[in-house]
Design a protein around this nucleic acid. Structure first.
Length: 430
RNA sequence: GCGACCGUGGUGAAGUGGUUAACACAUCUGGCUGUGAACCAGACAUGCGUGAGUUCGAUUCUCAUCGAUCGCCCCA
């Protein structure tokens, strides 16, 4: 009986695992330059935390959560996103009493029980940030631009930033009433999904892709006419400040997010690969005013976003093609003859102490096989040690890219490796 | 949750109701016992996602199930 991997999950190994991990490192370090600190919260929380925060009308909570009773009878859910947990942590630890805003970034696995598709898993990784505590459009822009620049940095040269405003609470309520009013007598001839949305969340009707419905939606009232002057100014300030930084955006007034907690500005990052692959949003976020108070803390405005690491990784693989980074080592030691094995092994351990990435084959194999192994391990250099070399304490160092080979003494080995491998790294970065 | 399509070795894949499941790449061994190639000779699926059924006989037909992919829904 062979065990099967669970639906919607995947194993990452080799370059995929390497690059996923690298993405986390890069995003983390860029977030640090923006003054964000790492926060880690539990993988599961009380179910109610999510129904309260993400929203009972949202599909995520409604039908996509992994929910169960633990042995103590507690109602538990695997996190479908990380914002709610971060908010809870802020309340639990009374972090809101510190200097505001609180700026945290996170990276972790989240769970949603959905039908799997390309770029969509039931357990996937999110990297995100939350800036909590101050209602100031500068923070919105700071956050949007952090996401934007991070994505640019890892290789998305032509990003699409979609942005919209949902207005403040009263603007949004008025707008919803207007929408209901508009769709009231038309809804019966719209698609079943829209009819459902009409009841649960009118805003989402704007998202509908059915052609017939689009015609009706086109003439629906626009949020713009229902925004309070304050909300309009807020949004305009955000746009102006984005312009100042030459961050390009597209205003998309049909952009409404699926999580219930957003207000004011919302945004999504998109990328369409040259081969047409479109994985949907690779990152998305927005401003929210009531989440912290919904979870039992003070009422503080916040803004945040989350990236989907698998989607980002999949697109980068297409963009970078051959250059997509593979695991590698610095040096592969090739030993010839029984008596050189131990000598080589000890040398290898010594080099590892100096933080070189070194490996060797501990079986007896022909030089041919060992060279092939070196290639397969993606080694930069091979160090060939035969009994003659062992006697003389002198080896052959072969550059596996250029095939050049030099003779080098034991004394000079580490210096030479420093020089030659350091150089290799430098060239890689260029 | 709904619809479509698919599932053969490490990989890409051909194929048939019936004794040895083609071909290619990769890998291993030897020819060549110290340098990644080429060439030559061998090796490599007790098996065709899983389970059941039809049949004298199924990888090939039927059903179920699991899984991938795509569309819808939703989302990162």
């Amino acid at each position: 009986m062979e065990y099967q991997i669970q639906r919607g999950t995947y194993d990452a190994y080799d370059e995929e695992a390497l690059n996923l991990k690298k993405l986390e490192e890069i995003f983390s370090s860029i977030a640090s330059t923006y003054g964000y600190n790492y926060i880690k919260t539990p993988t599961y929380e009380q179910t109610e935390l999510f129904t309260r925060s993400v929203g009972e009308s949202s599909d995520i909570v409604n039908k996509e959560m992994f929910t169960f009773l633990d042995k103590g009878g507690r109602n538990i859910s695997l996190r479908p996103e990380l914002t709610a947990g971060v908010m809870r942590a802020i309340v639990t630890n009374k972090l809101y009493a510190r200097d505001l805003p609180l700026k945290n970034f996170y990276c972790g696995n989240v769970f949603r029980y959905e039908r799997p598709q390309q770029g969509r898993y039931r357990e996937f990784l999110q990297f995100g940030v939350e800036c909590v505590g101050i209602n100031n459009y500068f923070h919105d822009v700071e956050t949007i631009s952090l996401g934007y620049k991070s994505l640019k940095f890892v290789g998305f040269s032509h990003l699409i930033l979609k942005i919209n405003t949902l207005g403040d609470e009263s603007s949004r309520e008025n707008y919803k009433i207007a929408l209901r009013d508009y769709f009231k007598d038309k809804i019966s001839c719209m698609c079943p999904d829209c009819q459902r949305r009409f009841e649960t969340n009118v805003l989402r009707i704007l998202d509908c892709k059915v052609e017939e419905d689009q015609k009706i939606i086109k003439d629906a009232p626009k949020i713009n006419s229902y925004l309070s002057q304050e909300a309009k100014d807020y949004f305009q300030n955000v746009l102006d400040l984005l312009d100042e930084q030459s961050i390009e955006y597209v205003i998309d007034d049909t952009l409404v997010r699926g999580l219930d907690y957003y207000s004011q500005v919302v945004f999504e990052y998109h990328y369409i690969a040259s081969d047409g692959t479109n994985l949907g949003a690779i990152g998305a976020g927005g401003h929210y005013d009531n989440l912290l108070s919904d979870v039992g803390g003070p009422k503080l405005s916040s803004v945040g976003f989350a990236f989907g690491l698998e989607r980002i990784n999949a697109l980068l693989k297409i963009i970078e093609g051959e250059k997509y980074e593979k695991p590698n080592i610095d040096l592969y030691i090739i030993h010839l003859g029984e008596e050189t094995k131990q000598y080589s092994f000890l040398l290898m351990q010594e080099l590892r102490e100096a933080f070189f990435k070194v490996d060797m084959c501990l079986e007896e194999k022909s030089i041919k096989s060992q060279l092939k192994l070196a290639i397969r391990k993606n080694a930069k250099f091979a160090l060939i040690i035969g009994s003659e070399e062992m006697q003389k304490n002198c080896f052959n160092l072969k550059n596996l890219n250029t095939q050049e080979q030099i003779e080098i003494s034991y004394e000079n080995l580490i210096d030479k490796l420093d020089e030659v491998i350091g150089l290799g790294d430098y060239e890689d970065e260029k």
